[in-house]
Simulated scan of single mutants.
Amino acid sequence: MKTLDASGDNPIVDLEAKYFVLGQLGGGGCGSVFAGFRREDLVPVAIKHIPKENLYCKQVCLNGKKFPTEVAIMLKLTAKKNDSVGTSAPVSILDWYDLGHELIVVMERPVPAIDLSTYIKLKRGSLQEGDAKNIMKQLVDAAIGLEKNGVFHRDIKPENILIEIGQSVPRVRVIDFGLSCLTKKGSFYSVFFGTEKYAPPEYCSSSVYRAGPSTVWQLGTVLYEMLHNQGFMTKRFLRKQLKISSGLGKNLKDFLQLCLEKEPKLRPTLTELQLHPWLRETSPPNPDKNT
């Protein structure tokens, strides 16, 4: 994998020479993302434009060199895959360009794929237990992988989870590391970067949170939305305006309640979640009534 920055002769000319740029895929507070293809082999790519003023965490050191934080995190995760694109949950970085006024990040673009929010809508607002379990198993595995690499995503939500739908078992991919950071075990944070409605209770009450318990909470909010045909909001859940359905299976309900435990010290670790009976049990084959 070759990465480029503003030290090249003309980075924008290089970008246009290497990639076809198509329509916009989406945008938000951090920047805009466009679809494209790599010219040499027509590999689908996503090209993210991030204005410099939208970079929350400016630079970090990786292997003795300074990189924009999002680039450093994606380079670190991609290096663990031996440069093999599409072999694990986090999408791979292919190139990056520092233009001074903006950062451009070129990533793989899984196709066909839709974000989890859209996937849930296509299933008429909620998923069958077996489908939700398959997705959650992959998410927990992905979160453990990030944790082992010292990466705190900070914004796990349905819009940042892609579902590859071109195979018999939907495959999870994790995207958007724009709010992520490199972390050490036991570190505390006092400034929240992420989507406020999914913020962990400890931040809402005391403005202090940690990576592991916060990630478990956000996984719980994702599972809640997969099962309940309504959006999640931490403050509404804490006020008991949102409730866990009584119709869920025993192990599933226990798993979700553990993730959404108000006290962070009582939430399981990611490894403990991985070993929970609900993820380990075999679901009976049920026809998908939502299709």
Results as ranks from 00 to 15, higher is better:
5 D>K: 05
9 D>Y: 10
19 Y>Q: 06
19 Y>M: 09
19 Y>E: 05
23 G>A: 13
24 Q>Y: 01
31 G>K: 02
34 F>K: 06
41 D>M: 12
47 I>G: 01
47 I>F: 09
48 K>S: 09
48 K>I: 08
48 K>V: 05
49 H>P: 06
51 P>F: 08
56 Y>T: 08
58 K>M: 07
61 C>W: 01
65 K>R: 12
66 K>S: 07
66 K>D: 10
67 F>I: 00
68 P>H: 13
69 T>P: 01
71 V>E: 04
72 A>T: 13
73 I>Y: 08
74 M>T: 05
87 T>P: 12
93 I>R: 12
94 L>Q: 09
101 H>F: 12
101 H>V: 13
103 L>W: 07
107 M>K: 04
110 P>W: 00
115 D>H: 06
116 L>F: 01
126 S>I: 05
133 K>Y: 02
137 K>D: 00
149 N>K: 06
150 G>M: 09
158 P>C: 11
161 I>Y: 07
169 V>K: 15
174 V>A: 05
178 G>H: 09
182 L>P: 00
197 K>T: 15
200 P>W: 00
201 P>K: 06
202 E>P: 02
206 S>F: 05
212 G>T: 09
212 G>E: 15
216 V>M: 11
218 Q>E: 10
224 Y>G: 15
227 L>Q: 11
232 F>M: 07
232 F>E: 10
237 F>W: 02
241 Q>Y: 04
246 S>F: 10
248 L>W: 01
252 L>R: 03
253 K>Q: 14
254 D>F: 10
254 D>E: 09
259 C>T: 15
261 E>T: 04
262 K>S: 11
263 E>H: 12
265 K>M: 06
265 K>T: 06
265 K>G: 02
266 L>P: 00
269 T>G: 14
273 L>M: 07
279 L>A: 05
282 T>W: 03
283 S>N: 07
284 P>C: 07
284 P>H: 04
287 P>C: 01
